[in-house]
Simulated scan of single mutants.
Amino acid sequence: MTATASARNPIPKHDQIRAPALALIAEKGPLKYRDLEQPLAAHFGLTPEQVAQEYDSGNGKIFLDRISWALSYMNAVGLLYKPARGLYAVTELGQQKLKHPESLSAFVDQSFGQIQKQKRQQAHDARAGPDLDPYRPDPARRTV
């Protein structure tokens, strides 16, 4: 068991998977997320049973799902890109962040938080257009 895995649930969380996954893609070149399963399992010292463990709901393998989440977050913040469907490759920003892998998860969390905040603001702005602003008088509805 690694230092990042707990005794209760040794399968690492997606934020723990980010740096090793990014390093592996940088080393090997573009990869599909399933191609990361075995090398990352070896990195984290997972047993075949742990790698094969599924959610109670039957919605797939836990470790593979967490790899997918890690890649999705890194893609969203510009550390990865998809050169073709299902393939992930490292961006220049990703290469730069690999120089300090200890700060990678904090960068992803902060950047993703900013993206979510911008999306919420854009959605709010779209809903509060000029015709929906309760404080802006409607020129078509003149009152006497």
Rank of each mutant, 00 (worst) to 15 (best):
1 M>N: 13
2 T>G: 09
3 A>I: 09
5 A>W: 01
6 S>Q: 11
6 S>P: 04
9 N>H: 13
10 P>R: 14
14 H>P: 03
15 D>V: 09
20 P>S: 09
20 P>V: 06
21 A>P: 05
22 L>G: 07
23 A>Y: 03
25 I>W: 03
26 A>I: 02
26 A>V: 02
27 E>Y: 07
29 G>W: 04
29 G>I: 03
30 P>G: 02
31 L>W: 04
31 L>N: 03
32 K>Y: 08
32 K>G: 12
34 R>I: 08
34 R>C: 00
35 D>A: 15
36 L>Q: 03
38 Q>R: 15
38 Q>F: 10
38 Q>P: 00
39 P>Q: 07
39 P>G: 04
42 A>M: 05
44 F>W: 09
45 G>T: 05
47 T>V: 09
47 T>R: 11
48 P>K: 12
49 E>M: 10
50 Q>G: 09
51 V>M: 06
52 A>W: 02
52 A>H: 07
52 A>E: 14
56 D>H: 10
58 G>C: 11
58 G>Y: 03
59 N>F: 10
60 G>C: 07
60 G>H: 03
61 K>C: 04
61 K>G: 05
62 I>C: 06
64 L>R: 13
65 D>R: 14
65 D>N: 15
66 R>G: 05
67 I>D: 01
67 I>E: 01
68 S>F: 03
69 W>D: 02
69 W>F: 09
69 W>Q: 07
70 A>Y: 06
70 A>T: 05
73 Y>S: 07
73 Y>H: 10
74 M>A: 03
75 N>S: 11
76 A>M: 05
79 L>N: 04
83 P>C: 08
87 L>K: 11
87 L>V: 00
87 L>A: 01
88 Y>H: 13
88 Y>G: 04
93 L>N: 02
93 L>C: 00
94 G>M: 01
94 G>I: 01
94 G>C: 08
97 K>Y: 01
97 K>S: 00
101 P>A: 05
102 E>M: 05
103 S>Q: 12
104 L>P: 03
104 L>D: 01
105 S>Y: 07
105 S>Q: 11
107 F>H: 11
107 F>G: 07
107 F>C: 10
108 V>P: 00
108 V>T: 00
111 S>W: 03
113 G>W: 02
114 Q>Y: 06
115 I>V: 15
116 Q>L: 15
116 Q>M: 15
116 Q>C: 13
116 Q>V: 14
117 K>Y: 04
119 K>R: 14
120 R>W: 07
125 D>G: 06
127 R>P: 02
129 G>K: 14
129 G>P: 02
130 P>E: 12
131 D>A: 14
131 D>L: 12
133 D>S: 04
133 D>E: 08
133 D>M: 08
134 P>S: 08
136 R>F: 09
136 R>K: 13
138 D>W: 02
142 R>N: 10
142 R>T: 09
142 R>D: 07
143 T>W: 10
143 T>E: 14
143 T>G: 11
143 T>A: 13
